[in-house]
């Protein structure tokens, strides 16, 4: 038993060091966002002036609003398309083009962004030459590109959630007289709802975080937030970017905290229900 204990101590140390590695850069971003000096890493006193600077930077504000718009639109569309794809792959065993669909909906997960970006740009240009649409590049093209690669993530999440779901639930509904479409909306969708929420959040994050694909398929006057940040940090560190990073981290942390609280609450309610029903809680 002694050597088992020895290993048990080794693992938490690895975990702690690994988590420190993940969080130290983020902490340093936050700390130096309150630094007065422009030199970012030379501490010269506490100040919030870079936050003021940030909010006066119209370019960043515009880019942030644009990114938010694209992210919301593409996340919603990606959830719809990804859910259909995931449902088809999980529930329809045999149809022509299944392998093609399975391959195409998993490939964007591992495709280097730079290839996806290049191919979509060349496609849009060729399409415009042939049909006159999309008539220049901007919000529309970026949104389509983001839908395409984030629907793959949604499809994978929904597919695995459906694979875990007991198919006899759907069969029971059909047995009780519900038509396939009714079964989908009354039974399947409510059960995979958590997967849809996490899929939406993931698609939103992927969209708002994307630099490479947006750089390819965006046009003049439609610079997303990552594009603006990239052009700024390419020239070196700048304190208002630290401030921006701190705000983003704050929003994410708050969101996660709320989600965790909601989760805890739901768990507690389930635990109470289980006790009321006199069931074992495990």
């Amino acid at each position: 038993m002694k050597s088992i204990l020895g290993r048990i101590r080794f693992l938490p140390v690895c975990l702690a060091l690994g988590l420190a590695f993940l969080y130290i850069p983020i902490l340093s971003l936050i700390i130096y966002s309150f630094n007065e000096s422009k030199l970012v890493t030379v501490w010269s006193g506490f100040s919030t002036k870079w936050y003021g600077e940030l909010f006066r930077n119209q370019q960043i504000i515009d880019a942030a609003l644009l990114s938010l718009r694209i992210a919301v639109m593409s996340a919603c569309a990606a959830v719809v398309l990804g859910t259909i794809a995931g449902f088809v792959l999980a529930r329809m065993r045999r149809f022509r083009g299944r392998t093609l669909l399975a391959g195409m909906s998993m490939a964007p997960l591992v495709m280097p962004e730079i290839i996806t970006g290049l191919s979509l740009l060349l496609f849009f240009i060729a399409l415009e030459k042939m049909t006159g649409w999309p008539n220049g590049r901007g919000i529309t093209t970026v949104t389509i590109a983001h839908i395409t690669f984030s629907m793959a993530y949604v499809a994978v999440i929904v597919q695995s959630r459906l694979a875990d779901m007991d198919p006899s639930l759907e069969e029971a509904a059909m047995d009780l007289g519900a038509r396939p479409l009714k079964v989908f909306f009354a039974i399947t969708l409510p059960i995979v709802a958590p997967a849809l929420i996490s899929g939406w959040l993931l698609a939103f994050t992927l969209s708002i975080d994307d630099l490479v694909i947006a750089s390819f398929v965006s046009g003049p006057g439609a610079s997303t937030l990552p594009m603006v940040i990239f052009s700024k940090v390419r020239l070196g560190v700048s304190p208002d970017i630290n401030a921006l990073a701190t705000i983003i981290i704050g929003i994410v942390a708050l969101g996660v905290l709320l989600a965790a609280l909601a989760f805890k609450r739901q768990e507690r309610l389930q635990g109470r229900d289980a006790r009321l029903a006199n069931l074992p809680e495990d």
Binding site: L19, Y23, P25, I26, T41, V237, A245
Partner: peptide, 23 residues
């Protein structure tokens, strides 16, 4: 613990790379 591992992923990739520039 899992949340702690995933959390950085939800914050901007670009900004996390940028953080290393300062370090």
């Amino acid at each position: 613990l899992l949340m702690l591992v995933i959390l950085p992923f939800w914050t901007s990739f670009l900004l996390r790379v940028y953080a290393w520039m300062g370090i």
